[in-house]
Amino acid sequence: MSTQFLPRIAAGDASAVAACLDEYGGTIWGLAERYLRGFGDDLEDAVQEVFVEVWRHAGRFDPNQGSEAAFIATIAHRRLIDRQRRAQTRRAVHFEDDGILESRAQTGNTAELNDDVRKASEAFQKLDADEKQVLWFALYHGLSHERIAKTVNIPLGTVKTRLRRGLMRLRELLNADFAPTKARPRVEGAAR
């Protein structure tokens, strides 16, 4: 994943579009399947919305701020959650921990990942089980805080507390390698 497609797409390089789709298409399609499961939403429409926003805002990608994969995943997370909120109904879906509480890494072959992605995945495994659980439901399955509270059967306030504490602890674990010191451009929709 060392190759970066977004700067080329921002410059109008049409050949990078197909390469970008090949690189991230399956990832975003799988993410959309998980996030929109039970909502009856149109997966193709959702995935197209994600990629069009990625391509249009490709010029805002800053390699110093994070990896291209993280940039695309962040946009996908926000767009898919927005679509969840717009969906009118949701069928009952049963969510599992998917083995997240096991000690082994959930990222497959970590050697192929970007350094920040790999480090984040490894740091995640060092969190407490309850922190990992709520982060997993929020980011992997795209569940709302209320939905997590019902699924895990804990109060909503506890969900928020665990999410905040988990993210802050992740920052601390990645402190040496993660945060750049210079000012960063804002990601679209990050702080409204």
Partner: peptide
């Protein structure tokens, strides 16, 4: 931005 990059890295790694 820094928190979004962190969550994006997690999502990208898992996905």
């Amino acid at each position: 931005e820094s928190i979004a990059a962190l969550t994006g890295s997690l999502i990208a790694g898992w996905s």
